[in-house]
Design a protein around this nucleic acid. Sequence first.
DNA 1: GCTGAAATCGCCTAACG
DNA 2: CGTTAGGCGATTTCAGC
Lengths: 166, 166
Amino acid sequence: MSASKLDPIDRMILAELQADGRMTNVELAKRVGISAPPCLRRVRTLEEQGLIRGYHADVNARALGFEVQVFAMVGLLSQAEADLSAFEAQCQGWSLVRECHMLNGEVDFVLKCVAPDLSTFQTFLTEELTAAENVASVKTSLVIRGAKDEPGVPFDVLEARMNAAP
Amino acid sequence: MSASKLDPIDRMILAELQADGRMTNVELAKRVGISAPPCLRRVRTLEEQGLIRGYHADVNARALGFEVQVFAMVGLLSQAEADLSAFEAQCQGWSLVRECHMLNGEVDFVLKCVAPDLSTFQTFLTEELTAAENVASVKTSLVIRGAKDEPGVPFDVLEARMNAAP
DNA sequence: GCTGAAATCGCCTAACG
DNA sequence: CGTTAGGCGATTTCAGC
């Protein structure tokens, strides 16, 4: 599952599919400079290795009526592994919580949330998140505006690294 | 560009393509209960309206060698619009910065960053981000582990809303 | 208007060299 | 990895509701 087993063509495939996940296989093959069958075999292998986890349409949340985006910093009372896992499991069940990352430092988790409006979010905040077992503190910050939202990883950095230490 | 012009079939299409952006059109048509040609027309319309911004392969950053993920909270010296925009423009040029959101509250921006290793990130932090014009403070938190990372929006919430207020 | 059916075109995906 | 080849999906055209 390591990147060292990837040749330049594999990395080009990943970069292209990250940029356009619905590209046809023949178009992809053309761009990476091989014919279609081996290209498809590489894609399948990358999927099986878990290097490609899936493909997703990037839907416009605002246009769909999700006007509110919030980052929530959550502190827990107990940081015992069982309690951390329990909180993570709860996040799985909250569909307004799109991301949950455990952090180092003063705060335990950062959550990225979306909601159709402020009152929906505040109901969730007061009745679900803050009220949850083991939650000590929640600090929320509304997203005023989005300035950058790139999915995935920067392949230019990866290529620079591969060239520097081959 | 409003969600009110979307019928239930459009919302099903969006939900399906968010879950699997590489689904064939005939499979998609079967799932939403119409035949392939109108299904494809709807998808094209959704793309043109900007409700679908694109399609992206979800690549495994860790497996690709991006071991480090960091959230950075950035405070600026000046919050004048020109200065905010200038900072946002700089974020566009930093490929380690994948997301940049302007927030309310004490901090001005939250940045989601990735890097191959800690030293790469710290070089970026000290020589680029902290050194940038108008940056007053940067507080970083390493991601210890990811607990949830769902792309897009929760369509169950959307459907509940449509049923409640049609 | 939008949907569905038929037909064409192009792609996907084996099998083989 | 490339080429060939057969089957399937994509996409246009056209008719019907």
